[in-house]
Design a binder for these strands. Sequence first.
DNA 1: AACTAGGCT
DNA 2: GTATAAGCCTAGTTG
Length: 423
Amino acid sequence: MWSHIKDKGIKLPKITAEEIDKKVGPVLRAMEKEGILLNVSLLNDLAQKTEIRIAKLEKEIHKIAKSDFNIGSPVQMAEVLFTKLKLPTSELKKTKTGFSTAASELKKIEKEHKIIKPILEYRELSKLLSTYLLPLPKMVDKQSRLHTTYGQDTTTGRINSNNPNLQNIPIKGEWGEEIRKAFIAGPGNVLISADYSQIELRVVACLAGDTTMIEAFSNGIDIHTKTAAEIFNTELDKVTKNQRRIAKTVNFGVLYGMSPYGLSQALSISQEDAAKYINKYFETHTGIKKYCEDTALYAKKNGYVETLFGFKRYFTNLNSPFRNVAESERRMAINAPVQGTAAEILKLAMIELNNKLKTKNYQLSTTKMLLTIHDEIVLEVPKKEVNKIANLVKEIMEKTVLLCVPIEVSVSTGKSLGDLTDL
DNA sequence: AACTAGGCT
DNA sequence: GTATAAGCCTAGTTG
């Protein structure tokens, strides 16, 4: 599917998707066995604080509602908000059972009633408590290390993680940082985190041969700022923060086949404005536009799409008479080569890194890969070796696969996942 | 087990 | 007129 791309000066290791998966398997098994050190008492303290806060919020919500309903029950929540308190529902999405009480919907009516704010905070905290703070301390081994199980997703090509999932450790908000501080390096060690910068956008720039994006990446220009300048008809140095934020959503949205409606929902803007931005985007990025059309057409014709290394994803409903079904598959077909190729680049880097760490230069090091989170690798490294290992990791991640745009990796380090600073 | 919600990339 | 952003895992409620 990509033979025309491979002529264009990119350099790929001679290996198939199947071989990548086979080789990354043992690397994942080693990472599982190693495990990441958890500061259990820190999490327990946080759990206690959170429980106290949740109890307060519960009382407050019940008092405002004048009803001791179960806040964890969406049905009872909808009953209280929309029947008892008669909050407006005109802007709200519906679920199969009634009006949605999801956070994204409640935010739309936050100003209508003082009950919404405590509900949102209650929801946030009870999620953190029940999914992270309470279960994780119970799952550590005798050395206080937490072991996940990695799997290889057979429809996307990504690596997944379960029991516990270490790919969705909270990071947003003040609580996110606190929780991350419990994921620590052992004595004498530090953690290194190495992140691909906008790997999926770089991949699609290359797969699509989008000249605008290729030029931006090649010149080290911030891609979201560049897109903002394009859709708002302005200069790079005149782009505002808000414009950049919108452009960032557009950039990612396009990868997922986002519609004007979806963009308007995500940004709380009008559908007209959303449509304007998307149109403008495709005017400038003709390569991306063509990629979307060509990929959807290829999928329809052949029943599958594939990644740069030949991982296939099959589709059976692209011609479904149910338009939403067909359109959903169309979006998957457009996204799959991008997400899948990015996953292959990461897996190849992990394999290469694992091999390098076994060679003479590094065989005495106790450096261990611990986590892999879609575009990121986390390692535990002896303090004295931080610079040496950081350079190695960066070099391998950036150079194992050479696309037609540079691949950039940012490296940070710290005693815990909650206090990583750029290197 | 279905449904809703919400954590992450 | 209808639905509308890719993917993963986990937890609580309900029947």
